[in-house]
Computed example of a mutant assay.
Amino acid sequence: MKRVLQTLAALAVLAGLAGGAVVGLGLYNVSARVGHLQGVSWVLHTTFRNSVRLRAARPAEMPDLSDPALIELGARHYDTACRSCHAAPGEAQSATMAAMVPAPPPIGQAVQGWKPYQLHWIVANGIKMSGMPPWPAQREDDVWPVVAFLSSVQQGMEGADYGTLTRLPDEEAPLAYCLGCHGDGGLAQVPPLNGQGAAYLEMALQAYRGGTRASGIMAQAAREVPPETMGDLARWFAAQPVAPIPPQDMPADLVERGRALVHADTGDPDVPACRACHGPDRSERSAFFPNLAGLPAPYLRTQLGLWRDGRRGGGPQAGLMRKAARHLDDSDIAALVAYYASLPAETGQ
C-alpha cells in the first residue's frame, strides 16, 4: 500500500511539473488556426449541454412567449447585441464569425433541442470559453423577450419575418433606433416616451448608460445612442404629442382601490403621495418623475415590483421610490397598476 501511495504521489508531482512547463514555457499552441486537440471539442460541447441541463430550473411562472410584442422586443435586442455572432434567421454568418474556435452556431441551429427555461439560463449566464457573455444586468426578467424571439426561431421564423420585426422607422439615427421600440405606444414591456419630461428622460438614459438602472436590453440600447445626443433626444420625445392610446380595460374595484392609494397620505413626511410625483394631475407632477397615466400594465407591474424588492435604481429619486414602494404587497401593486393603466394617456387626467 505504501508503494502504491508513493507511486501516486510521484505521478502527481510529474503531472504538476508537466502542467507547469506547458503554462510557464508556452508549450500549448493557443492559435485558433490549429483548433483543439482531437476529442476536445466533443468534451467541451457535451459538458456545456449537460451543465445547462443540470442548472437550468423550470420557473414557477413564465410570460406568454407567443406574445408578438415580446417577440418583437427580443428580436430588436438580438439585432444589435447578438446578430453579429449568430447571424439573423436564414442569413449566412460572416467569414470572421465562422472562423472562430469554437464557432458560434447560426441562430437557427443554436436554439435547437433547448426548452425555453434552458434558453433563458444560457442567455442570462453566458458560456465560458465561447465568447458568449452573461446578460449585462442583474435582472433576469428582461431576458424573457429574447427567449420569446428564440422560441419563434425554433418554430421556423424566416428571414422576411425577422426583417419585418427589426425594420426601423424612416427617421434619422439615433431617433429611428429609439422609435423602433418606444414609438406608436410602445410594446408590452416598453413605455411610450412621447410627452414625458425631458429632464426625466435624459436622467433615465444616463442611468441606463452608467449602469445605475439595471436592464440588459436598455444597457445595450443606451450605448447605441451617442452621449452628446441624449439631451436632444430627450427633448424631442418630450415635445411630441402623446399618442391617443385607448385606456386599458381594468377591473373597476382594482381601479378604485388604486385611486385611493394614489391620493392617500403615506404617513411618512419624507414620502409624498403618489400623485405628487406621478400625477395624474399635470400641475402636480415633478419634472424628474415619469407620468404613469396610460403606461402599459406589464411595464408598470414590473417596475413597481423592482422598486418594492430594492432592485431598481437610477437618478436622485431612487431612495425616495424605494421608501415609497417597500411596504407594497402584490395586491397594492395590482391596484396601482390598474388605476394608472386605466387612465387615458393622451390627457394624463
Rank of each mutant, 00 (worst) to 15 (best):
A324G: 11
Q118F: 06
F289L: 08
A252L: 05
L70F: 00
R326Y: 02
G35S: 09
Q154T: 04
R275I: 07
M321A: 01
K115R: 15
V22K: 02
R312L: 00
P136N: 14
P104R: 07
P104G: 01
G294Q: 08
V123R: 05
L295W: 01
A98C: 01
L8P: 09
M218D: 08
D67F: 02
H327L: 15
A60C: 07
D330A: 15
V30F: 07
S342I: 10
D64Q: 01
E224N: 08
A87D: 03
T80N: 04
R282V: 13
G19A: 11
A264W: 03
A81F: 03
S51G: 12
V111H: 13
Q189L: 12
G26L: 05
R76C: 02
P59N: 11
E346C: 04
T302A: 01
Q112C: 03
A325I: 06
R167T: 14
A273P: 02
V271C: 09
G183H: 07
P241V: 07
P280D: 09
V23D: 04
T7M: 12
W135P: 02
E228Y: 12
G231Y: 00
G108R: 09
H77E: 09
L11N: 02
P116A: 09
A69G: 08
H182S: 05
M157F: 11
P133I: 05
E158T: 15
P226Y: 02
D161G: 13
E228H: 09
A92R: 14
L5V: 11
E172Q: 13
R322M: 02
A148P: 03
G231N: 06
A318F: 03
A335W: 05
E224I: 00
R326C: 00
L37Y: 14
T266M: 08
A293C: 03
A92W: 07
G195W: 00
R33A: 14
L70Q: 05
A207L: 03
G294W: 01
L11S: 10
R312E: 00
V30K: 06
D330V: 11
P192I: 07
D265V: 10
T266F: 02
P296D: 01
S215V: 01
A148Q: 04
P244D: 07
A188H: 00
P59E: 13
D329Q: 13
N50V: 11
D270K: 04
P192Y: 07
L300T: 00
A57Q: 15
V111R: 08
G163N: 12
C181G: 03
Q248C: 13
T212M: 08
P296C: 05
T7C: 10
G26H: 09
P174V: 00
L292H: 00
R322E: 00
G231D: 05
M100N: 08
H36G: 00
A99S: 15
R209A: 15
M129Q: 12
